[in-house]
């Protein structure tokens, strides 16, 4: 059962106050994530008892549990070394790349081999990829056998606009946070429909399955082998990232909320033909911004997630609705500064 969060969006208090003090204690219980579209909800319902048992066992084995347990109830978290870091990321012209469901090629540096597998614990797709969901050929893993937002297929959409203003103050996961995020992003399909994401009236101050560092993290390494975010994305140096609860809009109307929204400014992780690269192919000298609305929601009272498709309102060529947003902005203006 997923958690309902309507009260997070009813506040009329100023942004800063809304952001943290209230509801912040609930964050740890809910929070965040990022990524993936592993087994769809229907598929999960059709799981055999043995498969359900395996899923529960993998979630129990999540390697970050101990670390998160030590942090999620902290009421007065430490501040970032060197003080707050504020940043603004903008795109004012040009389009965006939108990921489509695809199978992800599995990088042996991240996922190991069938004999010595890595990165398999936690909720499938969120923090791990179960071995039975991996293709195998010639003694190597080949691809994630489920469709996810992390593959090579994509399309472009016009008129991408991005405005992200954020501050990283709180260093660690905690029950409260002084971090702040204001995000507005939009883009248009070829029929003139406008899609938008708004975030965050609430930040994920503590992650259920991996750390979120108070909701905003700067100058860190995420994904891949790190265990912070899905391993289906390459290991990538991340200049700034956030996790929070936001809303999904189409043509100015909210079509889904609350949803977990994740954004990050990273080194460039696409290759020729916009292929999602492996760790050894990352381009450290270029950057792009990823915006993700994951097809997952936190499970009430538990530190794990379950699949829940996003109502994007965007129809795929096969008539299905795109069940997530994973959007890349690459015509960026970036500013940052230390201090208040």
């Amino acid at each position: 059962m997923t958690i309902s969060l309507p009260h997070f969006f009813s506040s009329s208090r100023p942004f800063g106050q809304r952001l943290l003090r209230r509801g912040a204690f609930v964050l740890a219980a809910l929070a965040l994530v990022l990524m993936v579209w592993a087994p769809p909800a229907q598929a999960q319902e059709k799981m055999s008892e043995k498969e359900k048992q395996m899923l529960a066992q993998l979630q129990e084995m999540n390697q970050a549990d101990g670390y998160l347990e030590a942090h999620r109830d902290v009421q007065q978290p430490m501040e970032l070394l060197g003080g707050p870091l504020s940043f603004t990321i903008r795109q004012t012209s040009g389009g965006v790349f939108v990921s489509l469901p695809d199978n992800r090629t599995l990088d042996p540096d991240v996922f190991g081999t069938p004999d010595q597998p890595l990165a398999f614990t936690g909720t499938p797709g969120i923090t791990g990829v179960p071995v039975p969901m991996r293709g195998v050929s010639d003694g190597q893993f080949t691809q994630f056998e489920r469709m996810s937002p992390f593959g090579d297929k994509n399309t472009t959409m016009a008129n991408g606009n991005l405005m992200l203003q954020a501050t990283d103050r709180t260093a660690t996961d905690a029950a409260t946070t002084e971090d702040e995020v204001m995000l507005k992003a939009s883009w248009e399909d070829q029929d003139g429909n406008t899609y938008a994401i708004r975030c965050c009236e609430m930040l994920v101050s503590a992650g259920p399955e991996f750390p979120t560092f108070g909701g905003v993290v700067t100058n860190h390494i995420l994904h891949g082998f790190t265990g912070i975010g899905t391993p289906l994305m390459p290991t990538e140096y991340t200049y700034a990232a956030f996790w929070g609860m936001g809303a999904v809009l189409k043509n100015g109307e909210v079509v889904d909320k609350p949803r977990i929204v994740h954004g990050m400014l990273t080194e460039y992780v696409r290759g020729e033909n916009y292929k999602l690269v492996s760790d050894s192919e990352v381009t450290p000298t270029r950057r792009h911004f990823h915006l993700m609305v994951a097809p997952f929601m936190p499970v009430k009272g538990e530190h794990k997630f379950q699949p829940k498709d996003v109502a994007t309102g965007f129809e795929l060529p096969n008539g299905m609705e795109l069940p997530f947003w994973h959007v890349m902005f690459e015509n960026l203006e970036i500013e940052s500064q230390r201090g208040e």
Partner: peptide, 17 residues
């Protein structure tokens, strides 16, 4: 001819490789 912003650049000072 795309919806994406591009450049045409043949300047070593702008290249990172």
């Amino acid at each position: 001819g795309s919806v994406i912003v591009h450049t045409v650049t043949a300047d070593p000072e702008e290249a990172t490789t």
